[in-house]
């Protein structure tokens, strides 16, 4: 257990050390290619110098790539929303907790990798500079309220720290041989976080009240969902949607024309592809208590559905009901996997 003063180079030394000592077989971390920065799985310690662990980019929630894997031991360096998805998937028995070392750092927000290959955290000054070029944060980041690491093995603090970073861990073993200098979390950090949180919460409130207005009547709900083409990209890119056989791929949910005809009889006509509302409601029910509001679904949607806002409202409601914040802790029971004898008596 300890907190250490580190710099950028120390993060790479840490990763290199993990591979060299054979503590892990590989590391999932962002790396620099020729022009781009993207997520990689690195096994060669010699390539650690190409890594860009703090790059403020997000193209998909990489927790998705860790589900049901047979690896012996790996380390991952991920954003807080990815780390939260990993925690949820551990509770859902889709990732083993004993063979994965999770490292996560404060996140000042990310941009779409299409907009550039930046490798340093998006501090205020950096953000201003980008805004000048017409590049803005991903929508999910402007409304993100969990931008510091959840419960993980190693967390790295970058917010409110003047020089370098602070590394905090409960387990010093991965740090052995690095000779890190002890360091304290500066007092100003909390105030800095508070400021960021306030701005983001306000943005979120606006987003949620807008979508709620649209959802509550049939006409406006149709308006929200009408452009969906049931390509299922949102499901594919969601780290939480993990069923091996999705209902919508079974004969019952993946209707052939003759079955559509049968369904059409009920209402006189059937929209093709069918079951748009049913599909979204089902995903709401299955994902709400674990959704980490990463925005991967909306970014994968070719039809620009406001999925992030929808999830902010729905997941927010369900998690508030159970006083649960998805993925923040590693060992809390999932809301829908447990119960209390006296609770929810008002549900009728």
């Amino acid at each position: 257990m300890g907190s250490y003063k580190i710099n950028k180079g120390d993060i790479q030394r840490l990763l290199e050390n993990l591979l060299k000592r054979g503590l892990v077989e590989g590391i999932l971390v962002q790396s620099k290619g020729e022009k781009d920065i993207f997520t990689t799985l690195i096994t060669d310690p010699g390539l650690i110098n190409t890594t860009a662990p703090l790059a403020p980019l997000f193209s998909s929630n990489s927790a998705k790539y860790l589900r049901n894997n047979g690896f012996k031991n790996i380390a991952v360096f991920v954003k807080p929303c990815e780390a939260r998805a990993i925690n949820e998937l551990i509770k859902l028995n889709q990732i083993r907790s004993d063979n994965i070392l999770v490292i996560s750092a404060d996140c000042h927000g990310t941009i779409d990798p299409k907009d550039g290959a930046i490798s340093e955290p998006l501090t205020k000054a950096k953000r201003k500079e980008l805004e000048g070029k017409g590049i803005s944060l991903r929508k999910a980041c402007t409304v993100c309220e969990h931008f510091t690491p959840p419960e993980v093995d190693i967390s790295i603090m970058t917010i409110g720290i003047d020089e370098g970073y602070i590394l905090v861990t409960d387990n010093d073993e991965p740090l052995e041989g690095l000779d890190l200098e002890k360091g304290e979390v500066p007092k100003g950090r909390d105030a800095e976080i508070e400021k960021m949180l306030k701005e983001r919460s306000e943005n979120k409130e606006k987003m949620v009240s807008e979508i709620r207005r649209k959802l509550s009547s049939v006409g406006s709900l149709t308006e929200v969902l009408k452009n969906c083409i049931r390509c299922d990209n949102c499901r594919e890119m969601c780290p939480i949607c993990y069923c091996k056989e999705c209902y919508f791929e079974t004969p019952l949910g993946d209707l052939k024309t003759d079955e559509m005809l049968y369904q059409a009889v009920i209402k006189g006509a059937l929209r093709v592809p069918p079951d748009i509302l049913f599909y979204h409601l089902t995903r709401n029910m299955h994902v709400a208590s674990s959704c980490v509001e990463c925005g991967a679904c909306e970014e994968a949607c070719p039809r620009d559905l406001p999925l992030l806002a929808l999830w902010k409202a729905i997941a927010g409601d369900v998690q508030a009901l159970f006083k649960y914040a998805s993925g923040m802790k590693g060992d809390e029971p999932l809301p829908l996997a447990g119960f209390k004898e006296s609770e929810l008596e008002e549900v009728k």
């Binding site: 409601l281 409601d317 369900v318 929810l344």
Partner: peptide, 29 residues
């Protein structure tokens, strides 16, 4: 403990349906 689980599920479901104006059509007794 089946019905305790039912209660949580229906509570979550009704919460979701509130957003769609459908919550009052589901009853748990």
């Amino acid at each position: 403990e089946g019905n305790y689980r039912t209660r949580r599920r229906i509570a979550a479901l009704k919460k979701i349906l509130e957003n769609y104006g459908l919550s009052d059509r589901v009853f748990l007794e």
